[in-house]
C-alpha cells in the first residue's frame, strides 16, 4: 500500500546521497570539471555550451564548478543548522520536560519569547553583529530553528516521565542523568529525527533568503543561495544563472521533504508533524 511513497522516498534518498557525495568529494579536491582550479576566464556570461555545461557567470567563472563548490556550503549549512537546533532543542526540552512545574513554565515562557520575536529580525541582528561568515549564518539559522525541537522533546518527556518503566528505573535507584540519557531520550528521539528532516531543507532555503536580503555569505564564498540571489534578476537575459542554482536547491529541498514525510509515516504514526 505504501509502495508509491517509499519509492519516492528512495529516489529522494538517492538524490541526497549523490549530492552529499559530490559535496564531500569536491571539498577533498576531486576535480569534477576542468575548471575546478581555474575560476576565472575571459568568457563572460556565456550560455551553456559543451565547454561550460552550465554556462558562465559575470566574471567568466564556470557555473557548474561554482554549483559544485556551492554544494559544500549549502549542504553543510543545512546539516549543521539541524545539528545546532537539535543540540540546543534537545537539551532545553529535556531540562524543561524533566524538571517540570515552575522551571518548565519558566522555560516555556522563554520559548514563547523566541516565537514572538520575528525570525527575520533575529537573523538580521545576528547577521549584522557576528558578520557574514559561515559562523554568523549558522548561529542565525540555529537560533530560529531550535524551538520546535525543544517543544517536541519536552512534550515527549512529559508523557514518558510517568510511564511505568521510568518509575521502575527510578525505584531501582537510577540517577536522573541515567534516566534521561538511558530511558527518556532514546524513546523521545524518533519525532526529533523526523523534525530534523524538515529543519535541513528550511535552513537551506533560509540561507538563500538571507543572501537575497544581503546578509548571506561574503564572496568569493558561494552557496546555492548566493548563486540564486545573484542570478535571479537575470531571469530573462541569462536564465542559466538562476535556473541551475534553483534546480539544485529545488532537488535537495524536495528530496528532504519527501524523505521526511515518509519517515513520519513509517516511523511512528503518533508523532506526525
Amino acid at each position: 500500500m505504501m509502495k508509491n511513497r517509499t519509492y519516492l522516498a528512495k529516489i529522494a534518498g538517492c538524490i541526497i546521497f549523490i549530492l552529499c557525495l559530490i559535496a564531500i568529494l569536491s571539498s577533498f579536491g576531486f576535480p569534477f570539471t576542468p575548471y575546478a582550479f581555474d575560476q576565472t576566464s575571459e568568457h563572460i556570461l556565456e550560455a551553456p555550451s559543451a565547454q561550460h555545461l552550465f554556462g558562465t557567470d559575470e566574471l567568466g567563472r564556470d557555473l557548474l564548478t561554482r554549483i559544485i563548490y556551492g554544494s559544500q556550503l549549502s549542504i553543510s549549512i543545512g546539516f549543521l543548522t539541524a545539528l545546532i537546533a537539535s543540540i540546543v532543542g534537545i537539551t532545553y526540552g529535556a531540562i524543561a520536560g524533566f524538571a517540570g512545574d515552575r522551571i518548565d513554565t519558566f522555560m516555556m515562557r522563554g520559548i514563547d519569547l523566541f516565537y514572538a520575536l520575528p525570525d527575520l529580525l533575529i537573523m538580521i541582528l545576528v547577521g549584522i553583529i557576528i558578520g557574514r561568515g559561515t559562523l554568523g549564518i549558522l548561529l542565525a539559522l540555529g537560533l530560529v530553528s531550535w524551538m520546535g525541537t525543544a517543544r517536541l522533546v519536552r512534550a515527549q518527556f512529559l508523557t514518558l516521565k510517568n510511564e511505568e518503566f521510568i518509575e521502575a528505573a527510578r525505584a531501582c535507584g537510577a540517577s536522573s542523568w541515567t534516566i534521561i540519557t538511558r530511558h527518556l531520550l532514546p524513546n523521545a528521539l524518533s519525532p526529533v529525527i523526523v523534525s530534523l528532516t524538515f529543519i535541513i531543507p528550511s535552513a537551506i532555503l533560509a540561507e538563500s533568503t538571507l543572501s537575497f536580503i544581503g546578509l548571506g555569505l561574503s564572496p568569493p564564498a558561494c552557496s546555492w543561495g548566493t548563486l540564486a540571489s545573484e542570478g535571479w534578476r537575470a531571469l530573462r537575459t541569462e536564465p542559466h544563472l538562476i535556473l541551475w542554482p534553483s534546480l539544485f536547491i529545488f532537488m535537495v529541498v524536495l528530496s528532504f521533504n519527501l524523505l521526511g514525510d515518509t519517515l513520519a509515516d513509517t516511523m511512528d504514526p503518533k508523532t506526525r508533524v
Binding site: 500500500m1 505504501m2 509502495k3 508509491n4 511513497r5 519516492l8 531543507p201 528550511s202 532555503l205 538563500s208 533568503t209 537575497f212 543561495g225 540564486a228 540571489s229 535571479w232 534578476r233 531571469l235 538562476i242 534553483s246 536547491i249 529545488f250 529541498v253 524536495l254 521533504n257 519527501l258 514525510d261
Partner: peptide, 26 residues
C-alpha cells in the same frame, strides 16, 4: 493514500516550499 494521486498531491504542495520565495515571485 499510497497511490500515484497521493504522491502527486504531495509533490504539488511541496513544490511551493522547494524554492526560495524570491525565485517563486520572479
Amino acid at each position: 493514500k499510497g497511490t500515484a494521486i497521493d504522491a502527486m498531491c504531495i509533490i504539488c504542495s511541496t513544490l511551493g516550499v522547494s524554492l526560495p520565495s524570491f525565485v517563486i515571485g520572479a
